[in-house]
Design a protein around this nucleic acid. Structure first.
Lengths: 173, 173
DNA sequence: AAAATTACTATGATTTCCCATTGATTCCTA
DNA sequence: TAGGAATCAATGGGAAATCATAGTAATTTT
């Protein structure tokens, strides 16, 4: 495995398709903290391997960052590659990324249970907004997301306008 | 089958020959929000891979932007390539690109169903106008498109007049 | 034993599938 | 070439499957 960053992604070209987390969904959170993960997201998760999602408080935003286990594994490889195993940088990143992460497994109905800490961090009460970010997704308190969304809209449009779809994918992750 | 071996119609095997979305079609939207995607457009979509289209509210116009799944896969690679995983830019772009995109899969009759949000955004009621843009297409409320068309016609004529024919083989019309 | 976690069951609502009808175009044949 | 048959596309409605959600029971943990 190379030491060049988070690379080594799935060969998006032929054969294997890469499922993406798309769109937005609002689901209810019950008294026990249970929420249904949108069926479309569950379908995008790898069926083999570790069942469930990795959830952690976002480093910069008042929301929860979510990904599947494979993604975290690749992330881990990337961190090891960029820094050495026992460097300060590795320690810092690894601590903040992995230390606060929970593996939340699905119950038989496709729900996960958000701990009090997680819910408190994102101010989630009785509704949870799932926002697809491609290879990851976030969980927000709906109103909080609207504010965040409004604050980034102009920059997002500007940044997106500078982008072009690459004809030869396979670059990162 | 053929002996000629040339051309051979819309056979989008490995992306060599890219079929284009052309012309305009008006189809009905029923109470459930279902619309037939024009058969000509369906024929232009890759047959292997995800059966459906990616639909999102246009950033600048009151219409819906549509593309095939490969398109957003390439976008994904581009986003991960251009911006680092944890940068603000990445988050902003991913939020607006993926969060606002829906993967609408075809029902057995070749229809997709537009969510209330999508229809509301584009003011689509009982008729939907499909407008081919080559590699992508748009969905409009018919009257709204007429207004838009009138407003851009002058600019299009002007732009075409300044084009250099040889260097711009696929540019206009 | 009490609390907390996990599993099971049920229900209402939505979504998806299936079939049936229509209109239009293409193909065949006389 | 005109008529007619066959095919395909678009549309509509009802049936079936899926999903989100709530409540309750069972199990584990401490």
């Amino acid at each position: 495995m190379s030491a060049s960053g988070i690379g080594e992604g799935p060969k998006a070209q032929s054969g294997k398709r890469m499922p993406l987390f798309l769109s937005k969904y609002v689901n209810k959170v019950d008294k026990k903290g249970r929420v249904s993960v949108p069926a479309q997201y569950r379908a995008a998760l790898p069926k083999e391997g570790v069942p469930g999602v990795i959830v952690s408080p976002s480093l910069k935003l008042k929301c929860l960052d979510c990904a599947d286990y494979e993604f975290i594994e690749k992330l881990s490889s990337g961190i090891y590659g960029n820094f050495g195993l026992f460097t300060d940088q590795h320690n810092e990143v690894a601590t903040s990324v992995f230390g606060d992460s929970d593996l939340l497994q699905f119950d038989p109905n496709g729900r996960i249970t958000l701990s009090d800490d997680l819910r408190k961090y994102a101010n989630i009460d009785s509704n949870a907004l799932f926002v697809g970010l491609g290879k990851t997704f976030q969980i927000w308190e709906p109103k909080a997301f609207e504010l965040h969304r409004a604050s980034i809209r102009d920059q997002a449009i500007e940044a997106a306008a500078t982008m072009r779809p690459v004809e030869n994918p396979g670059g990162a992750l």
